[in-house]
Write a protein that binds this DNA or RNA. Structure first.
Lengths: 351, 351
DNA sequence: TGCACGATGTTAAACGATTAACACGAGGAG
DNA sequence: CTCCTCGTGTTAATCGTTTAACATCGTGCA
């Protein structure tokens, strides 16, 4: 009574082998209908609810689940439209293959984490029972990525990697599109708000640019290329991809006496926050100040943001497919982006 | 070379027992520093990345993960602000206990699913390696809930249950608040848009009300109680909790020659869609037509929706805590709600 | 009649780890 | 000097399945 019901106890109660019970649950065709229903009857009677998930995973080597890990902490993730679109894409592909989505909480690698905290985070990565993982925006040397590839799990990433599989967009080219668009409008003084673990509003010195997320860095390089050589570009930390961070960054930028004529943000969320802040200061966005975003999430359209559209859901679908069917899919895919011009950008004001 | 590196192979290579290797990874205090570092060195050399997750789960009986299952399909879930808030709450509690969140794809039980599809869905529930689960809005007799409780997993729900643990809100009381509010404004003809698996826009006959989601049913009962006895109440299916469904339901309702003076929706998303549709038809919401929502998600404030606020994130936090610490938390909690009046409701138009 | 074959069960070897229980030697207390 | 304890390491049982390989038997076919 105190002991748990297992495959074995069912087998004993039914007077058959454990193999038979296993087949009854997994391979109906291997058993006569009569035997099968007898076994299932006994199982039901004993309150046996089918093979144990963990044991099954161990034995078969399959978990029927894939992990997901983000640059941002899980708690924030659910308010980030980019992440949501990606998850939506993943879920769509997974929906009909009885594969679950395991969201691994990873305390993001901001400064000042104790060793113990990092270790505990990594522990979650090690203990996740999964067949593969999707890592969004993480570099090769990110501890979580390392942990995953150490585990020899199939891994699909959304940033450049020489070793693994990835789904990319041309961040640099997209940056160039933005830079050129602003240049054509006459802008020569641009602030770039990058997603970065630092405190929002802080100026990112040139030497630190190497530490930015790869996509941020690439976009930044592109923006510089798209602008004339003599343009001024200041790089400002946008903190996490959230409204509050965007507000803080915008406030810092707009408080400067020689404020820029345009602000290019790393995401639509940040850009929308910049717009809000600017509007609050009495600025007319699209005239006094131009603002660009990135991603073209639904928010962008309603906020009238000029932005770069990337097919996020398609990215998710593709990543999932690359994980589920490693042989039927390429190692590396680059998806197209497109500059979408709306009302948040306009000619540089006549001084 | 072809064979996988395991705890055992490391032990052999290092000339120690498997126990020692296990301790090296799990219980540093059980080993001398020297021995431990020697073992870790050998492990690194062999490319051993730590104990296998599935084996560990089997042996310890812990998965370090909890499952989540919704009434809505996973693909839609990520665009449902209610779900996102709940997930946010869950994640918040889980963040620091190295527990992952397993999103189980369950093909929702709409009509016309083949047996095979349902079975496959249930399979995902059976195969999920988890320590417990959160089920949002599902009844006792939902197949997925049954599967979970058969597995004898701790389960926390957000709907009334005699047997298990749950976090509730007073749906009926909240409904009464809405009904009374509308009654005070003079409304006597109200359409209620309920979340239901049926096609949006369809009238739900009285006999079918028993099949609604429990929270829908309770709110509906409350609304009826809040309205005068002679008021007319028509119940309309809102389909899934998405804008498109809301539009369809609203279109159907507003097309009727004797259209109601107020529409009470089961969620803010549906309500916002109703507002859009009505506005598109030239109606002035708050004057020509009153609309109420439910949840008070961020969307509600910007849309000016009169709605009932429920503490969704708190719900999530609580559910997670009840799962992680079954002994330190009560079996059953009821959270408060509050009617929030905004501009989407107003006095019934003067005929 | 003989025989190969499909259908149906069983045997038993993994899968990769965790952890009581025990063994052993060194050092401290009495 | 003896006994107890503490720190380290090992032995071996166990977690609950899956599945190749084999045994058995009734059948259809030449």
């Amino acid at each position: 009574m105190g002991t748990r019901v297992t495959l074995r106890s069912v087998a004993e109660a039914a007077g058959v082998s454990t193999a038979a019970v296993s087949y009854a649950f997994n391979r109906p065709d291997r058993l006569s209908a009569e035997m099968r229903s007898r076994i299932l009857a006994v199982a039901r009677e004993l309150g046996y609810s089918g093979p144990d998930a963990a044991a099954r995973s161990l034995r078969t080597g399959r978990a029927n689940a894939i992990g997901v890990i983000f640059t941002t902490e899980l708690t924030y993730a659910f308010s980030d439209p980019y992440v949501l679109a990606l998850l939506g894409g993943l879920a769509e592909t997974l929906a009909h293959s009885r594969t679950s989505l395991v969201l691994i909480p990873f305390v993001s690698v901001v400064a000042g984490l104790t060793d113990a905290e990092v270790r505990q985070s990594l522990d979650a990565v090690h203990r996740a029972v999964i067949d593969g993982a999707v890592a969004d925006g993480l570099t090769d040397d990110h501890p979580a990525v390392r942990a995953l590839s150490d585990r020899a799990l199939p891994l699909v990433r959304s940033s450049e990697t020489t070793t693994g599989r990835c789904v990319l967009i041309e961040d640099r080219q997209a940056g160039r599109d933005i830079g050129r668009h602003l240049a054509n409008l006459g802008h020569r003084d641009v602030a770039v708000v990058v997603s970065s673990p630092g405190a929002p509003g802080r100026i990112v010195p040139r030497v630190d640019e190497a530490t930015l997320y790869p996509y941020s860095r690439n976009r930044l390089v592109g923006i510089r290329e798209g602008l004339p050589a003599d343009a001024r570009v200041r790089v400002v930390s946008g903190g996490s991809n959230a409204f509050a961070s965007g507000h803080a960054a915008a406030a810092a930028i707009l408080a400067a006496p020689d404020r820029p004529t345009a602000i290019a943000a790393d995401s639509d969320v940040l850009a929308a926050a910049v717009v809000e802040t600017a509007t609050g200061l009495g600025l007319h966005v699209g005239q006094d100040l131009s603002v660009t975003g990135f991603d073209d999430v639904p928010l962008a359209a309603s906020a009238g943001l000029t932005t770069v559209r990337q097919p996020i859901e398609e990215k998710g679908r593709l990543m999932a497919r690359m994980l589920l069917d490693p042989d039927g899919t390429p190692n590396r895919v680059t998806l197209p982006t497109e500059l979408v011009v709306r009302s948040s950008t306009g000619p540089v004001p006549a001084r």
